[in-house]
């Protein structure tokens, strides 16, 4: 949990937003996703959001949904995600993005939390576990020092937003737009006001994700947010390469370009 705060503070001290690339564990295959993870750590990621492939990802648009399906077909399991986490968690804090059924099913939340902590994870985002359902998971996570990162959407009413901020750990994830994950042409004009309001209520940093697909958009969002999450664009880059080296190189240059765009602002 503390590692997340430190990562945001380091970025802030450097006068820029924290950069948090997303990746899908096991996509397009285990080797390539390991190369992508290493490349993130090598090329300026402050934190890594590690997606656990799930059969029915309701918060995800076509790119990440297809990547999850492909990862599962390529044999990815929960263990694949834990192995990737273990490989890079010494260098950069890792926050899982994992759907509720993977956290709650069978072994139960205690089992997931235990394995995530053992792999060195700093926390998890569970996109289908809203405030009312979150308490048992938050408690189980807290015992092991894992942060349960909550989400706030443009449709979240102000009172509820304050309640979510009050229990937030690690950081608050602001969903930029009404919709699923995926690249978009424009950053919604209302986003700045939402981020500003959330920052006023949260004691932890506020990062923005969904729909950020270019270094310029990332820099634009980074003007108001403490951190910027880039998902579908990087997943697409990882999938387009021919093998682990190409994937690592493609995502690496995107991260460097994004850091350069931060520096220009």
């Amino acid at each position: 949990m503390e590692r997340i705060e430190v990562a945001f503070r380091v970025a802030e001290d450097q006068g820029r937003p924290a950069l948090m690339p997303y990746m899908m564990a096991g996509y397009p295959d285990r080797e390539s996703s390991l190369a992508v993870a290493e490349s993130y750590a090598d090329n300026g990621a402050d934190l890594v959001e590690l997606g656990v492939p799930f059969s029915d990802p309701l918060a995800d648009g076509p790119t990440i949904h297809a990547a999850a399906t492909a990862a599962l077909e390529a044999g990815a399991t929960l263990e694949t995600a834990f192995e990737l986490c273990e490989a890079i968690s010494g260098r950069v804090p890792v926050v899982f993005m994992v759907y509720a059924n993977m956290v709650l099913a069978h072994g139960g939340v205690g089992e997931f939390a235990r394995r995530a902590a053992a792999a060195g994870a700093a926390g998890a985002i569970v996109p289908d576990l809203p405030l009312e359902e979150a308490e048992p998971v938050r408690a189980a996570f807290a015992e092991l020092g894992l942060a349960l990162v909550p989400l706030i959407a443009p449709t979240t009413p102000p009172e509820r937003r304050a309640q979510i901020c009050a229990v937030a750990q690690g950081f608050v994830y602001v969903v930029s737009t009404v919709g699923t994950t995926g690249e978009r042409d424009e950053i919604p004009p209302q986003l700045a006001a939402l981020v500003t309001a959330t920052k006023a209520e949260a004691e932890v940093p506020v990062a923005v994700g969904f729909g950020i697909g270019t270094p310029e958009q990332a820099a634009q969002v980074g003007e108001v947010a403490d951190g910027v999450i880039i998902g579908s664009r990087l997943v697409r880059a990882a999938g387009e390469g021919g093998g682990p080296e190409a994937a690592a190189s493609a995502v690496g240059s995107f991260l460097r370009e994004t850091r350069a765009a931060f520096a220009r602002r």
Binding site: F54, S55, D56, L58, L72, T77, L78, Y99, A100, N101, M102, V103, L104, A105, H106, D128
Partner: peptide
């Protein structure tokens, strides 16, 4: 089935031991 989450509610679902819906 086993207890799990599908399409927004906790119920009895057909899933594998990791929680992937079958």
């Amino acid at each position: 089935g086993a207890t799990g989450v599908l399409h927004g509610s906790l119920s009895s679902v057909i899933a594998d031991e990791e929680g992937q819906i079958l």
